[in-house]
Design a protein around this nucleic acid. Structure first.
Lengths: 336, 336
DNA sequence: TTGTATGCGTTATCAA
DNA sequence: TTGATAACGCATACAA
């Protein structure tokens, strides 16, 4: 236990605790010399104001919680990196929670966070989009919340998203231009808003080019690697698509593995494009054409958005939605 | 701010705050019926004990801090995932700090953490291994600390490492067996313990096979992508090695990019092996031979180690070092 | 500019 | 089994 506290420091300096306290707050009136003396002694004795006592007193924690579905994913790692940077610049710390796409964990995390541990939450929601009324039940006491990327549409809270519809449209169109006529769309959870938006871009691009939409080309995948491998292999052999558009990175990987196994040549037999923030997409075999979201920037914007809410509890005129632009980078996996 | 507190709950139930408190602690004597009544009402009113008040009172935070050099790295993402899992199982939360391999940030994080914010620290040290006596100055008040992977050898604290010496030896030997005679070793920071250990395995493997060690085949890289690209290209053109062993994942990527640019064929002209936890190493062009560390397990073990220290402040008989085994997975980048 | 006194929300001690 | 009370370390209103 850190046994040095404000009282001991006060005794050591023959000052009152209030004066010591003032030396550590920026706003208070205090003699410059005394302040220097205090800070010097504090450094010598290795004193720092106890975080929990301050928080209890001030009713805020200078901490924000970040909830993500997974960590071993370039997109979320980068986003967290962006959040961390902005948070640190603002003197905030970040708590990390991983739901593993488990809805129950998400609910549990959010509930526990309402005990003062965090001042705000930045979240990308779990893949299992069931009933999320649990967010409503906090009412006005709900912690400031910012969604990024994967959101619940019916929850009114600031959000950072990307132009998914346009991106999907362009991605699908790109496949069509490269000669694909039977394009499968791989998705993890159709009902999740992000899945729906992305799917709509796909559907509309097909329509524009007068390619009939076929329900069974929408391939619903899971969170299990083994299951996906099976599902994709079956789709490849049964449906024999000539193009695949995957809504998340790991489905592209699974597709690659499946093609290796089935001896399907990419891009000769099958062209592949995917949403992905993988920095080494150019190193894949073949290099992967991607829709790349500005992951770090998304994290940064989400953090900034949260801070504007925190700074302005009145909640007036707040910006409610930031839309960033993804970039399509054409590589060999969609070569003619 | 959450306006429901223990006092209000007590009033609502016509009980004292102590009784309420007891309902939330496992050990205390309390009538089963009252406890149920309290918990029910608490749920109804959405009451949770305030975390900061509890912490202040109990002098612990149920929080551990994790300090890593980078996040956008499969190894650290996976390790954090492991830590998070164990922490959560133990009712702990984790704070994340990223040093970006900046020594100053590392020092600053550690210092600030000694204000009660965390009960313990799990850290993989920054690449800039300068003076780290700063860890000594806390003396007996130093927070429980566990190193993983990248450690300071002169700091006496529990650690989780992998059998780096053996792995490097085997990796080098593998290159030799595949016909390499001029093997470059790419390292980020020679002086860092992990760099030295890994380098020694390389050196000894060369010696065993009577291949003269050449100082200039040790290529010291930096943390900047651009710099590394230059350094590696120069090494490839000047030294013309027929094998490259990289001590960290991103140097392997940089090598791939350099070879693409310079039209060097892997594995024809140059064989490449790397420490890496990249799950999609099989998808690279060519698939990358790796020494794969059990990243998630390392994180889990580090967390467990920290908890044994936390549970046993006496510090007796504590296990001080856990050594896990990496696995070499041969792929096409080292094919004959 | 500095000091005194109080309370933030909780839990442990002690008494009932 | 329950209640009253003090204390955790700090920051603020108010007094000096």
């Amino acid at each position: 236990m850190d046994s040095i506290n404000i009282k001991k420091l006060a005794e050591a300096l023959n000052l009152s605790t209030s004066t010591i306290s003032r030396a550590f707050r920026d706003n208070s009136d205090i003699n410059g010399a005394t302040k220097d003396r205090i800070l010097a002694k504090a450094k010598e004795l290795n004193y720092q104001p106890n975080h929990y006592a301050s928080n209890l007193r001030e009713q805020k924690s200078k901490t924000i919680a970040v909830i993500v579905p997974e960590l071993a994913n370039n997109y979320f790692s980068q986003a967290i990196h962006g959040i961390e940077r902005i948070a640190r610049e603002n003197g905030y710390h970040i708590l990390i929670y991983v739901t593993d796409d488990d809805y129950q964990k998400e609910v549990s995390f959010i509930q526990h966070l309402h005990n003062g541990r965090a001042d705000g939450i930045i979240m990308s929601v779990s893949g299992e989009a069931n009933d999320h009324n649990y967010l409503h039940k906090f009412g006005s006491k709900r912690l400031p919340l910012v969604f990024f990327d994967r959101i619940y549409e019916d929850i009114d809270t600031p959000r950072v998203i990307t132009n998914d519809y346009e991106s999907s449209f362009l991605a699908t169109e790109h496949l069509i231009e490269q000669g694909c006529r039977s394009i499968a769309y791989l998705v993890v959870n159709k009902s999740l808003s992000i899945g729906k938006t992305r799917m709509q871009g796909y559907i509309d691009a097909l329509a524009k080019h007068r390619i009939p939409f076929e329900e069974n080309l929408i391939v619903d995948c899971s969170n299990s690697y083994e299951e996906n491998s099976m599902i994709i292999k079956e789709a490849l052999t049964q449906l024999k698509p000539d193009g695949i558009f995957t809504s998340v990175e790991r489905l592209a990987f699974a597709t690659y593995y499946a093609c290796y196994d089935l001896n399907i040549n990419i891009p000769g037999d099958l062209k592949v494009i995917s949403f992905s923030s993988l920095e080494i997409a150019p190193l894949l075999n073949p290099s992967l054409t991607t829709i790349t979201q500005p992951a770090i920037e998304i994290g940064e914007e989400a953090a900034k958005l949260l801070f504007t809410v925190l700074d302005n509890q009145a909640g007036k005129n707040r910006l409610n939605e930031v839309v960033l632009t993804s970039k399509m980078i054409k590589r060999n996996s969609t070569n003619k």
